[in-house]
Design a binder for these strands. Structure first.
Lengths: 195, 195
DNA sequence: GCGATGACAGATATTGAAATCTGTCATCCA
DNA sequence: TGGATGACAGATTTCAATATCTGTCATCGC
């Protein structure tokens, strides 16, 4: 007998179908077909197509968060940690976008449909930044007075570096000179945080 | 007899047609009809529909540049000038987007079609920023060593504040709290430039 | 009993024929 | 003679008929 139908297996199949057909063509019927079940069975585990897609999106975003978490829990001066965090984020995105542009475009479309999931992911990222900034302030590396709360400062850093992680700019990431632009912004932001 | 057919009059009519029909529906035939001439006559002044649209786009962008130029030629410390320049840009965009969202969306579509025109406009904006930064450095207000050339620094400032002038973020500009986000980024960037 | 099924209604997407548009150019006429 | 015209070919868009999909649910079979 075939393996039991679990949310996990459905998500796996959905990713495959999305990879194969793209976000515009992938249907719930396709996912059911790939699993050898009726589409009614898929609806038993995910109430709507949108919910299924949101779950796939979340999974994808969580993978990035995971990578970055290790930077936050690493050691070293906060400034260096912040550099590493921003660089890791930029490089991860850049490689995903560059290595498989179609798949990246697919996930970008998914993300634009699931605004709630993305917002939570952004909150998470800003939270990680705030942790680093808070540590840097406690150690006297970052200015305690001028930059408001660590959370505010984290939002500012996130916004100021949007060009290097927001998918709307993905096309720019393969242009010559982006690397330099990134370093310029990164160092400008870092100078802004320091005492 | 009717007024002579000039590029100026054609651009005026094109703006009207775009306002009325939007970027998706506005045709060269519509423009010709609005002017009471044949569409062949329009093609005498603009080689293609794309060229006509690019000219309209340029006109629109130039109006923003004009507003900002007065800030650069103003007086006061560079830091204050930079604050004013960034704030003027943000407020101008925010009002255009908020007061007539459809028209703003129309121009945003036009801009996305005419990448060359937009690039030149961005170069112009960065140039204005560089002027302010250069002045601030000469007066000893901004750090001369840490921030590379004035042009590099200007690019960094422009990129770091993208969220508050790039039309892709227009939807965010009406959200409560953007004002605070803007001020946070602005002050972060300014701190980054100062000695 | 419990999960799977597939028929079904309403919504959405596809398709191909017809209409419109873009860009050219021979012709017109002031 | 220099600018305006409108017929035209090929490209693009529109529109309506058709097909497919989403989400529900009564029914089935293990």
């Amino acid at each position: 007998m075939a393996e039991a139908l679990t949310p996990e297996r459905i998500l796996e199949a959905t990713e495959d179908v999305l990879r194969r057909y793209g976000p515009g063509k992938a249907t719930v019927v396709d996912v059911a077909r790939a699993l050898g079940v009726s589409h009614g069975s898929v609806y038993r585990h995910f109430r709507t197509k949108a919910a299924l897609r949101a779950a796939v999106t979340q999974r994808w975003l969580d993978r990035t968060s995971e990578q970055l978490k290790s930077v936050v829990s690493g050691t070293g001066p906060a400034g260096q940690q912040l550099d590493r965090w921003l660089t890791t984020l930029f490089e991860a995105k850049r490689h995903k976008a560059g290595d498989d542009p179609e798949l990246f475009a697919t996930y970008t479309v998914l993300a634009s449909e699931a605004s709630g999931v993305v917002e939570r992911h952004i909150e998470d990222s800003v939270g990680q930044l705030a942790q680093i900034i808070e540590a840097g302030r406690d150690e006297g590396e970052f200015a305690a007075d001028a930059i408001g709360s660590a959370y505010e400062a984290a939002r500012a850093v996130f916004h100021a570096t949007a060009r290097f992680h927001d998918p709307v700019y993905a096309a720019e990431w393969s242009r010559p000179g982006v690397e330099d632009d990134f370093l310029s912004v990164r160092s400008l932001v870092l100078r802004g945080l320091r005492r």
